[in-house]
Amino acid sequence: MVVDDVESEDGGERAAVSFAFDRMTVQRFRETFPRARWSDRRKAWIVPGKTARRRIDRWIAKEESRADPYAEAKGRDAFAFEPILSPYLGVDKDGLRITTPYSRKLVEEIRQVPFARWDGEHKVWRVPFASYDDLVDHWQAIEAEAQRCEPEERRKRAEARKGTDQERASRRGAAERKRRRIPLPAHDLPPLNRPIATTPYGIIVVDDITGELIEPKEIADLYPDIADDHIWGIWRTPSLDELVQTWPSRTEPGDEERQRGWWLPTLEELREARRAARAREQRASPQPSA
């Protein structure tokens, strides 16, 4: 099953879900989501509402448990017999609850656990007991990354970097990012005004090509893979609307595309970018007065 966030023409929040056709599965889905509508364009069911993604995740978890109706009970027993003892893991009426500092690597690791979902209201990750064995497999990496991202650990690393080549490189990289430019292969330029995925800056939109040839030696520390003729492109961060309207690539980028430095974003990459864009727009929007 594939779930994605989408936005309606009137700006309302929705989620799309697609799954292999099965008459009984569709019937159960329609009973759970009576307002859902099929989209021929997206080849998916569209569920309206701010909590649509969360409700779909819960429904998928229930569907998964049909394959093993005792999975939830088995997970509870496994946790009771050999619990994960960690300040980052708790239990409540909704199942297992993960609370950690943020890092992209941490998010990617948690998403490897089946049916793990982000609870934006409580700012925690939710994992059903049915996925406990999978959580155990990933927990060492999750906890290690969470500890590394604690504010005190970040401060220690920052102190250790002061005056080092690493700090100077970090400052130079930050200054380069503010210039909003990116080297692009002169013989294989990306489409303008369309979200693309890039190695150094994630998903961006290239607005303009300067035509200025780049001297690789001058930027070798920032872009070590530059070899052939490259020119500068001027980029910006895409809006949520642009990301929603972008169709994902059906294939993962190959080595050649990654070496090129840009590729058409995949569904997972777009999902992450949409979440970030939605959070940015929510922070930027004026809060209603009390």
Rank of each mutant, 00 (worst) to 15 (best):
residue 218 E to V: 05
residue 289 S to Y: 12
residue 270 L to K: 06
residue 182 I to E: 01
residue 253 P to W: 05
residue 174 A to M: 01
residue 242 E to M: 06
residue 14 R to D: 01
residue 118 W to D: 05
residue 220 A to F: 04
residue 157 R to V: 07
residue 286 P to Y: 09
residue 194 R to I: 05
residue 28 R to P: 01
residue 89 L to G: 05
residue 270 L to V: 11
residue 193 N to V: 02
residue 33 F to S: 00
residue 195 P to M: 05
residue 42 R to L: 14
residue 148 R to I: 02
residue 43 K to A: 10
residue 2 V to Q: 15
residue 279 A to Y: 04
residue 205 V to N: 09
residue 9 E to C: 09
residue 220 A to N: 08
residue 31 E to Y: 00
residue 232 W to N: 11
residue 138 H to F: 14
residue 13 E to Y: 00
residue 257 E to R: 04
residue 218 E to I: 00
residue 98 I to K: 05
residue 210 T to C: 03
residue 176 E to L: 04
residue 251 T to L: 13
residue 148 R to D: 12
residue 180 R to T: 06
residue 12 G to V: 03
residue 3 V to T: 13
residue 151 P to C: 07
residue 10 D to R: 08
residue 7 E to V: 15
residue 132 Y to L: 03
residue 180 R to N: 11
residue 5 D to A: 12
residue 134 D to F: 13
residue 101 P to L: 10
residue 186 A to W: 02
residue 45 W to F: 09
residue 242 E to F: 05
residue 160 A to F: 04
residue 238 P to V: 04
residue 54 R to L: 07
residue 109 E to K: 07
residue 184 L to G: 00
residue 18 S to F: 10
residue 177 R to A: 09
residue 102 Y to G: 06
residue 269 E to V: 06
residue 247 W to I: 09
residue 250 R to D: 14
residue 181 R to W: 00
residue 112 Q to S: 09
residue 53 R to G: 07
residue 210 T to Q: 04
residue 157 R to P: 06
residue 222 L to F: 03
residue 71 A to P: 08
residue 2 V to F: 14
